[in-house]
């Protein structure tokens, strides 16, 4: 007897769990020939709000982990992704990649995670400063995570774009609500499975599938979302809604395969600078080295 194939149900990822969208809606994506590939959850505004609640809940403990521990967990994501390379390659091919391009994309993604894993316990030292002031103060600035960050993942890239935009945000101790590429969402949900099995606490990364009009608009106006990362051309329609809590908007327009598509600023852009004025005895005189 012929074996029945078990088809995968692609669900969304909220608070470390894989629920269906509460709205019960879905959309169909197809391969290049027009054959349907999968039913994808069409996340609602309510799903986006639930994801924000989950992300906020996860914020405290994630940002309080030691930088070194966050680096270890990020490295673990890379390890798990390495182990499931073939699955991602197969999915990318389904979505229209060639074998070679798919392999390259998965490898670049793994390398990019390892790259940010390295930054986890270094960005703070590199970006913090001791500032010269003309009073009796020791004045220094350090970075602190912003909190909950919304990420509208690149539309034209399935895995690499998602990894390149999400990972630097969590490297700095933020939590994320991400909307996957609308037309290429398969790898995003499979990547959520990788996150789920690599010691990333539930809620640190939440991944939704659906439309920018619904999900990103909700994130933009939500007072409990501290920053929004997304493509430059997608932002114009949402920037006004983001004014109410002075949400920081960080836009990118990058070719994710290029070396300039990673860097320290991807981490430090989603950080707040805290400056401390520490009173000291007068060392502002000529002999002071500050």
């Amino acid at each position: 007897m012929e074996r029945l194939e078990i088809l995968k149900t692609y669900k969304i990822y909220i608070g470390g769990q894989f629920p269906r969208t509460e709205s019960g809606r879905y959309y169909v994506i197809s391969d290049k020939k027009g054959n349907p590939l999968a039913n994808i959850c069409l996340a609602s505004r309510k799903d986006a709000r639930n994801a924000v609640v989950a992300a906020r809940k996860a914020c405290g403990s994630w940002s309080e982990k030691t930088a070194f521990n966050r680096g270890q967990i990020l490295y673990r994501i890379a390890e798990m992704l390495e182990g499931r390379k073939e699955q991602f390659v197969a999915e990318l091919i389904k979505l229209g990649s060639t074998q070679k391009a798919a392999e390259k994309e998965v490898e670049l993604s793994i390398d990019r995670i390892v790259y940010y894993a390295g930054w986890a316990d270094k960005y703070q030292q590199i970006s913090s400063t001791v500032n010269p002031v003309s009073s009796s103060h020791f004045n220094f600035s350090v970075l602190e995570p912003m909190g909950v960050v919304g990420v509208s993942c690149p539309q034209d890239s399935s895995l690499l774009g998602l990894v390149s935009t999400i990972i630097p945000v969590i490297t700095g101790g933020n939590t994320v609500v991400a909307l996957a590429s609308e037309s290429l969402p398969l790898c995003a949900i499979t990547f959520a499975e990788v996150l789920n099995s690599s010691d990333v606490p539930g809620g640190v990364v939440n991944i939704l599938t659906g439309t920018q009009k619904e999900v990103v608009a909700t994130l933009a106006s939500h007072m409990d979302v501290n920053a929004l990362v997304g493509n430059t051309k997608d932002f114009n329609s949402f920037s006004e809604a983001a004014v109410d809590n002075l949400k920081r908007l960080i836009s990118f327009d990058a070719d994710w395969t290029k070396p300039e598509a990673h860097g320290l600023h991807f981490v430090s852009d989603v950080q707040e600078v805290k400056t401390t004025w520490h009173p000291i005895e007068n060392i502002g005189g000529a002999s002071s080295s500050y």
Binding site: R56, S221, H222, M223, D224
Partner: peptide
Amino acid sequence: TGLYQSADY
């Protein structure tokens, strides 16, 4: 206001 709120405020 129609806006979802944050405990920050």
